[in-house]
Write a protein that binds this DNA or RNA. Structure first.
Lengths: 106, 106
DNA sequence: CTTTCGTATCAAGATTCGTTGATGTAAGTT
DNA sequence: AACTTACATCAACGAATCTTGATACGAAAG
């Protein structure tokens, strides 16, 4: 297994923060099937348009989605590299639990 | 590769929420080396004791750490199963990007 | 039993985040 | 040009979260 590059903790916290909202997770879930325009997401999630825009902005700021303008429409898609960062951060934490290394001071 | 079990979105959001704080990520990082008592964490992180306790409580509520009382001291350790849930949630999102499935309506 | 040590809890204030409704803007239509 | 469509931004508010300092609690020590 290849060593996962270690992500700065501030960056990891920001990505997890973007992932910490149900509605944003649902948005990402819809994007797994491929690019979607905002109007499709609005309909699928039944959210006020400005709220959806707010969450998309958060996901974009965290590097989890990309947007692409096509005439009137803006299409959003997953950015796998953003999700990989989150996985790398988790991989740095998921390890064999060490049995209780010779208690230092307590 | 085994299919990752799919985690309820509300649960995933809660775990990511617990991971969305720098201080909590640092705590988890310290626990990778094995169990630590609160006093060790306090010293290592240079945080007010009550603040550390607050964050440990959040991590415990999210199922990311376990605690064990030993006399005066309370030792915290990673709970790998909690972290695995986060990884499973990410695995459900990290997929080959689909090339733009025949634009539905937009 | 009193004191001390390690940790948890609480109340209050500060900060951040999510939601709503209104307005702005860019692109296309007539 | 005026209008519409699709989306973004803004201000305002409430709700959740973080932080601090004080207090409470459980376990050991004296």
């Amino acid at each position: 297994m290849v060593l996962a590059p270690s992500i700065p903790v501030a960056r990891a916290a920001a990505v997890f923060q973007a992932l910490s909202d149900e509605k944003r997770l649902r948005i990402l879930g819809l994007l797994v099937g491929g690019e979607q325009c905002v109007c499709e997401l609005t309909e699928a999630l039944d959210l006020p348009q400005s709220l959806l825009s707010f969450h998309l902005k958060a996901l974009k700021a965290a590097g989890l989605v990309a947007d692409r303008r096509d005439g009137r429409w803006v299409h959003y898609s997953l950015r796998p590299s953003g999700l990989e960062e989150a996985k790398d951060a988790l991989d740095a934490l998921v390890v064999e639990p060490i049995p209780r290394a010779k208690a230092a001071r307590c």
